[in-house]
Structure formats: C-alpha cells, structure tokens
Design a protein around this nucleic acid. Structure first.
Lengths: 309, 309
DNA sequence: ACCCGTCGACAAGCCCGCCTTGTCGACCGA
DNA sequence: TCGGTCGACAAGGCGGGCTTGTCGACGGGT
C-alpha cells in the first residue's frame, strides 16, 4: 500500500499537537482511528515515526523529516487544487493567441495589456499566422484563440466580432491623392490593388473587394502581392490598397494613408475559438474585448458565448 | 472531501494513456472504478479535468495543469518515503554530535571524514561541550551523540569505548624533562597538575589522577586551572599535565610533549548516547569507529549496541 | 448503408477497510 | 495507593471503493 494524503493529514495533526487524543478532536475522528492510521502509515513506510511513551508522544528523527515533507506535500496539494480551479476559471494558465497581421497594430497590444492587468496569472502566448491557417491551428489544438478579419468558419469553430475598424486608402507618398483630406473610393477604380489572394486572407479580401463593389467597380488585383512586398509596390507607385486605420502606428516607409470619402467601409475583427472545448480564458477575453471596444460587437456574433462547463 | 494521492495516481494513468480502459490495466482496477474516481476527483475540485469524446479522451487546460502538479506531488511523496526510510536507517538526516576538547585533535575529524565518505547524505552538526554537560545535552534532545572521556552515566544513557589514546606529559619548553626521550610519571610527583576540577571533566580527571595514583602519588592540583589558562600556566613553567598524544596536532605555544616511561596510561574515549530512543545514525557511527580504531573497544562496553527498532 | 468493435458512462451488489464503541494496561500526580 | 489520563487492543458496523453487467455513442470496414 502507498501512503495517502489523509494519513499524512492525520500524522501532521498528531505531530503538531504531540497527542493522539487532542489531534483526534482537530480532525474529527476518534483517537483509535488515528492510532490505526498512523500505525498503517508506519507499516507502509517501514519506519517508526512517533515514539509513544504513554503520557506523551515524540517525533523520531525519521518522523521529524517525514513531518516536514508531509507539510510541504499537503501545502502543494492545496495549491494544486487552487491552481486547477484558477485555470478552469481562466484566471491562470496559458492562453495561446494566434493573430493575423491586421490585429498587430492596435488590437492585440491593447488586448494583451488589458489581460495582463485583469488576469496577471494568465500567461498569454501570441503567434502571428495567416488567416488561412486559423481554422487548422484551432482544430489541432495549436492555439486556443485567434484574432482575424471576419469570415465564415466550418462547424465546430465559433467566432464573434470584437472590434470594427475603418478602412483607409494606402497610397504611395507620390500618389496624386497623397495629400488630399479624403479620397473617393470610386476614384481608385483604375488602380491595381495590392491585395493578397482570397485563399490566404478571405476576411480581409472580402472586406476590401466588398467595399470596391459597393463603390461600383471590381478591383484589379496584383496576384503577386504578399506582405511587405505589397508595401514596397505601393510605395513605388505600383498600386494601392485599403488598410485598417491603426496601420498608422507602424506605417511602412513611403506609404500615406488617406481617409475614404463618405461612409467609410469597415473591417470587422473577430475572435475565433473552438466551439467544443473552448479554453476557459476565452470568455474572459471576450469580456475584455467588450470593455475595450463596447458597442462594436452587436453585429456578427455567431455564438453569443462559449458554453459554460 | 479532499483529493487523495490514489486519485491522482489514477488521473495520471488515464491522462498519460489517454484512455480509461488502457489505464485501468496499468493500475490493476476495472475501467469503471477509474471513471468513478476521476469523476469524484473532478467533483471535489469542481473542475473538469478530462474531455471525454467517446473514442478518445483529452486533457482540458485545467487538467493539463493539474496533471503536472500531480506528477510532481507523486514524485515528491515517493521521495519523502525514501527519505524517511533513509533517515531511519541512519543514511540521511542530521546527527548532532557533542564532543569534549579531548576529541577535537584527531578523533572527531577522523570520524566526520569517515561519515562523510560512508553516509554522504547524513549531515553532521558538531558542537564542543564540557564533559559535565554531556548527560544533560543528551537527555534534553539537544544532541544525539557525544564523544567524551570514559566515565559513568546514570540509567538511560549508554556508552561504549571507541578509542584508547596514550597519555603523555605536557610540560613547558623550559622544563628539565622537555628534551628527554621519556619521563617517569613518578618523577612529576612534586609538580602542580593543571587539571580541571573533577566535576567539570570527570572522565579525564579520573584518567590522569588514576595514572598518578598507579605511579604511587596523589597529584597536587591547581584549582584555578581551566582551558587555555592551563596551557599558559604550563608554558610559563607553573605545573604540568597529562594529555592525549593527539594534542601534538594542535600543540599550544610553549608546550612540549614527553612520552611517559613504561606502560603508558591511556585515556578511553567513549561514544555516549540515549539508550531509549537512540538516533538511527548512532549504530553507523559505532560501526565507523570500529573500522577506524579496531580492537580498541573490547573493554568497557556497557551497551553492546543501541536496541534495533 | 449496415454492422460490429471499441470506449466510457450508468447501475447494482459485494466486500474491504475505515471509523466507531468498549476496554485494558501503563504512567503520573496526589 | 488510588484516581486520572493517555495510547493500544478488540470487535463490530457502515460507508465507500471495486467489481460485474449493461447500455449508448462513435468509427471503421465491408
């Protein structure tokens, strides 16, 4: 037989009160039960822990050593319980957030700062991904939550819009509209759009292409566009794009942002997670987003909340 | 109810095999018992540890955190058991040795070095005491073992001679016998002996006074003698004393040791310990002494061995 | 599409082991 | 010497853990 925590609890009680009778009151059992269990513990250890000289009881050297270990073990067991509960409540543990580049300029830093303040024991790991990888990352348990432009997901993946950002025109510094206070989107109908292919960033693609169609034209794409390559092309005067306003925080060299005239088209940023077994901290993240960006979330919620356990 | 180590063992088994059925084989119970105990564990924690999707079982984030804690706890419990056994066997733990100054020149260093080699996990704490304090130190659990010149002890204290050392004459460098190859003890009958009062060091006193009486005279004492004060007096030519040969390792300035002519009187060094609840390492110490100083111990053993537990 | 194999949960009963009550022997103080 | 206290021993009851038996669900194979 192996030692059990209950026996350790009994042993600690006896050792600290130096009495079976008094310890029995502490742990709410009869004195005889303590005698039995301590004896059983000593038998499994093969070690005498207490010297019973009728009248008083004293620790043997081995008992003193084991007592210290028992206290540590019991304390550690209690902490483990508390920690498990904290992780289940989303207050502790590790939350792995994947994000697309769109979120990096403002949304992700604001969110991580908010979480660090509200749930300091929650460790947040972040990783930049392509929007096309979000679904797989979640399914394969390689992340717990993603931030990506709004798009559709298969069953088993839930999403909720946490923030809406105005889209602006990104043009080269030498572009005719570069200095203008605003630009008509329709006026860009003849430009080449440095937009990633739809299968790499469907949400972003739909937002931009949708805005163009609403303005009455189908955007002409540069199929070679990708990442910083696209910025270089725009800076060099080869095309334009629509980007989130928060790009201003990390504006690439040679690029100018120009507001769009009229009602600005938006990009909706979604939080995305596993519908089945959501990470416990997901609901905390959603709460945090609701605080950070209130009244931006009414539209587009597919799942109001991850199911409570 | 509180979590028990048995439940943790079950949980670890299930988590590592990712299967109730397979884990059941590992821990030699039926699968249903595992389901029950894991459920009970989850109930006491108030936390779901495993996600059962019929076909496979997966850890929740809280379960993963708790699993790590459980492994640590189980390992620590095993170490605690081993450590308690080691302490009970005298291989580990702390042994507090009190010694009189007589032992410090050779006996104690040899013994601690031997123990450090034979029982490296046993921490030895040493403290110099007066022989008159040995009994009280042991009774009050302020030390576990003492090294002191042979003398009698009340019931409850056991002793065994571990070493015999030749006594030599300690004289001032300017003493007539200082250069001699040997000196007759009877020739020192008119000297003042710088010997501590009997109630401070009975064993040592009896050894020296007994040697003098065997040589045919009663030593004249300097009642003010004590510690380094005695050395200073001898160095200044005011008296002599008989000392153990190993004093040569730390010979005080101005003192010369001269062998005694004829069969040299001895000082017997005893190991002394509580007869009732001896420290488990005491028997190892006695074994060590028997190895270090064989055939010096036949005489004077009051207790052949501390009672085995 | 159907069936079968596998897996975990549910149900009921047994049995071990933990706790209880009752008692004794030992030690200590009065 | 006697009473009080403390821990160990003994016997019995009861609760809980384990077992057997069964079901529903999911997946893969034909």
């Amino acid at each position: 037989m192996e030692p059990e925590l209950r026996q350790m609890r009994y042993f600690v009680a006896v050792a600290e009160r130096r009495s079976f009778t008094r310890a029995a009151e502490d742990v709410y059992v009869a004195q005889q039960a303590l005698s039995q269990q301590i004896k059983a513990l000593e038998d499994t250890l093969g070690v005498r822990l207490l010297d019973r000289t009728s009248r008083r009881v004293e620790l043997t050297p081995a008992g003193a050593a084991y007592l210290a270990d028992c206290k540590r073990l019991l304390a550690a067991a209690g902490r483990a319980t508390q920690h498990a509960r904290a992780v289940a409540d989303g207050e502790a543990g590790t939350l792995r957030i994947a994000y697309t580049v769109t979120a990096v300029y403002e949304t992700l830093p604001a969110l991580t700062a908010h979480l660090a303040a509200r749930a300091p024991r929650l460790k947040v790991e972040t990783r930049e991904v392509f929007a096309s990888d979000v679904c797989r990352m979640l399914r394969e348990e390689r992340c717990d939550l993603a931030l990506a432009p709004r798009t559709g997901y298969p069953k088993g993946i839930a999403r909720r819009t946490v923030r809406r950002e105005a889209l602006m025109a990104a043009v080269g510094d030498g572009h005719p509209s570069a200095g203008a206070p605003a630009v008509e989107l329709a006026g860009l109908r003849d430009e080449t759009f440095q937009l990633w292919p739809r299968d790499m960033a469907p949400g972003y693609y739909d937002a931009v292409a949708g805005a163009c169609r609403a303005a009455g034209f189908e955007p002409v794409l540069d199929e070679t566009a990708s990442g910083s390559n696209a910025w270089a092309a725009i800076a060099a005067g080869r095309g334009v794009n629509l980007v989130v306003a928060s790009l201003a925080h990390q504006l690439p060299r040679g690029i100018t942002l120009v507001p769009l005239a009229g009602p600005a088209p938006e990009l909706r940023l979604d939080a995305v997670w596993r519908a089945e077994q959501p990470h416990p901290a997901v609901s905390r993240v959603l709460d945090g987003c609701a605080e950070l960006w209130p009244a931006q979330q009414a539209g587009g919620a597919v799942s109001a909340r991850p199911a409570s356990p």
